[in-house]
Design a protein around this nucleic acid. Structure first.
Length: 596
RNA sequence: GGUCGCGUAGCUCAGCUGGAUAGAGCAGCAGCCUUCUAAGCUGCGGGUCAUUGGUUCGAAUCCUAUCGCGAUCACCA
């Protein structure tokens, strides 16, 4: 980008002047802050010693040399140790035009062979998706889009946790208390129906425990010997033995859940290339353990359990097989990672999983490495923070979880109310209006979540998330819709919208220049975000862009009285801005409506 | 207790590979609809960047220590 080219040339000049050998990346060159005059700023403090001159002398010297040597350096000014460089408009635009023709916003045109597997979502089939899953899904999907835009061959995968004692709990509760209820008979979404029985199990289980404690049991004993939990464990054993009736029940209830999940995924706008089921993968990893034992990486304890000694690496010993030969979470994950690696031979495997599993992934990488997997270092744990509510943490047992479907319903409802209140959609058909409500609601929700740094614990305030003012998705959608409106209206007046910025350079103001430069830097942002896996960065960038455009719009309120060249330029600018906003929002998985 | 993460305006968050006077939005106050979308715009007030010591021309940013909050250290997944 222009920054780099500029930096290269400045490096040549500085090196020659002071007999140094600095690379462009070692120079501190940034865009000039808006309160100062200039386009780019070089910090000269680092050369002061070599130059044996004051910062001001040094900066002036470099500035004069640059102006003399390069036509695109128009002039400069010096404030303390800061050299502000002013780039010549026409030279700069010339460069800009070339770059613009070469590529559109830096999205790779050719796909690389590099495959990246992104695992996200990974729900349990015993309860509906909640707010925490929403953050997971949006992050996973956004990151995948960002990587795709960077030319990677992305495989989005989901590992569904469809077996285990927790699944048996809801199965058992349904069998005992369900009276044959189905999604059809109740009108409930399948995942909600199953979730209802999971809660019901917990309720009855707690009652049994309380009863046992009253009759003299200790708490731990009561928890272990309550009839319900024993029954659930028995059911799990039956499942593992392939008992026909148990499997039938399990398949039926899971199919309800999947239908419910599909609906929620669809509403969130996320999708997967491949879905793994834990019931099919939970035995994986055992052969890895055998190999590990053979090679001496793993060892047996007296009771027959298998462990990996990680004490030399700052971790504890890690269990991989129980004494009875059954595997644990880590064993399965080792097996699944191996399976996935062999299947895709990816350059990187991204796991979108909450930060409470940081330890797990550190251990996973380490054990894989010890087992001889050279690719273990390519596992990237996209670790995200919890979502908290104003009342505190979400706890399913205390009923303080925010259900994903309820949340989306609420957002759509609010969008509808706001829209009707403003009376803007009078000329919309009911279908159009419905779609718009959905787009606005999801835009608000998605942006609200994605604008926060993934690794940080975030506060989810329902009241604020549906605010349509300020740094929000709807603000950006609104801005985009207005740009489209300008273009549309101009077309009605017969003004052509061209793709190239070849007009009006003489009348470019500072604002236009800085706006175009911001757009021009967009590819860099994508690149950086792709590498850092940070949708938050893109979200904030798009907001800045939308804000800048709004400012521009208000500064040039009356366009139809202006001269043709200015019109032409403004239109180019508008269409350019529009596409950048749209591309950026697409990266985040947010729809932007053309009119609002 | 060990390890990891976080601490920036009343609130929610940017900024963190060291650069100029630390930025947005919300909330509060004062203005702006005859023109293309007021879901908007303008202005005002609001800060010991948790504390401490260091590194240097320069620290919210890097390092030490302390305090506070959280996660984790399961034969749960």
């Amino acid at each position: 980008m222009i920054d780099k080219i500029l930096a290269d040339q400045i490096a040549v000049t500085v090196n020659k002047l002071y007999n140094l050998s600095l690379s462009a990346s070692e120079l501190s060159i940034s865009k000039t802050r808006k309160e100062f005059v200039g386009d780019y700023t070089l910090v000269v403090f680092p050369f002061v010693k070599a130059a044996r001159k004051s910062p001001e002398q040094c900066a002036n010297e470099i500035g004069q040399t640059l102006v003399a040597q390069y036509p695109f350096v128009e002039s400069f000014n010096v404030i303390k140790g800061f050299l502000n460089i002013i780039v010549s408009g026409s030279e700069w635009l010339n460069f800009f035009g070339q770059e613009f023709n070469k590529s559109t916003f830096g999205f790779a045109e050719t796909k690389s062979d590099e495959t990246i597997v992104v695992e996200y979502s990974s729900p349990n089939t015993n309860k509906p998706l909640h707010l925490g899953h929403v953050r997971n899904n949006l992050l996973g999907f956004s990151v995948s889009q960002i990587l795709k835009a960077n030319g990677k061959n992305v495989k989005m995968v989901n590992l569904v946790n469809d077996r285990g004692i927790h699944i048996c709990k809801s199965m058992l509760a349904w069998a005992k208390y369900g009276e044959g209820e189905t999604p059809e008979s109740t009108g409930l979404k399948g995942d909600h129906l199953v979730g209802k029985y999971y809660v019901l199990f917990d309720k009855h289980y707690k009652e049994e425990i309380a009863g046992l404690i009253e009759s003299g049991y200790k708490k731990e004993e009561a928890e272990k010997s309550a009839p319900l939990i024993l029954e659930a464990q028995a059911m799990l054993r039956k499942w593992e033995q392939g008992d026909a009736e148990t499997i039938r029940l399990w398949k039926m209830m899971n199919s309800w859940v999947y239908q419910g999940f599909d609906e929620t995924y669809k509403r969130m706008g996320v999708s997967f290339d491949k879905i793994y089921y834990e019931s099919e993968t939970y035995l994986l990893g055992k052969d890895l353990v055998q190999k590990g034992l053979a090679s001496g990486v793993l060892f047996h304890k007296e009771d027959g359990s298998v462990w990996c000694d990680l004490t030399g690496d700052g971790f504890d010993e890690k269990l991989l097989l129980r004494a009875d030969g059954t595997s644990v979470y880590m064993t399965q994950d080792l097996g699944t990672a191996m399976l996935r690696y062999n299947e895709f031979k990816p350059e990187k495997m991204v796991y979108v999983v909450g930060n409470e599993q940081d330890y797990h992934f550190n251990v996973l990488r380490l054990v894989l490495k010890k087992l001889g997997a050279s690719w273990a270092k390519e596992i990237y744990h996209l670790s995200y923070g919890m979502v908290e509510l104003p009342q505190g943490k979400m706890k399913s047992r205390e009923g303080t979880v925010v259900d994903a479907d309820d949340l989306i319903d609420g957002m759509v409802q609010t969008a509808r109310e706001m829209t009707e209140q403003l009376g803007k959609l009078d000329d919309f058909s009911s279908e159009e209006a419905k779609l718009l409500h959905y787009n606005i609601a999801m835009g608000a929700l998605k942006y609200f979540i994605l604008k926060v740094d993934p690794k940080k614990t975030m506060m989810f305030n329902p009241a604020e998330s549906i605010d349509f003012n300020g740094n929000t998705g709807p603000f950006i959608q609104y801005t985009y819709a207005r740009i489209c409106s300008v273009i549309r209206k101009a077309a009605e007046r017969g003004i052509k919208v061209s793709d190239k910025l070849t007009y009006g350079i003489e009348i470019l103001g500072e604002k236009e220049k800085s706006l175009i430069k911001m757009l021009h830097d967009f590819p860099g942002v994508v690149q950086e975000a792709g590498n850092n896996l940070s949708p938050a960065l893109i979200a904030n960038y798009i907001f800045e862009l939308a804000k800048e455009y709004n400012q521009f719009y208000h500064d040039h309120y009356i366009i139809h009285e202006e001269v043709e060249s200015i019109r032409q330029f403004r239109l180019d600018l508008s269409s350019f801005t529009a596409s950048v906003i749209k591309n950026g929002m697409n990266l985040l998985g947010i729809n932007v409506p053309g009119k609002m």
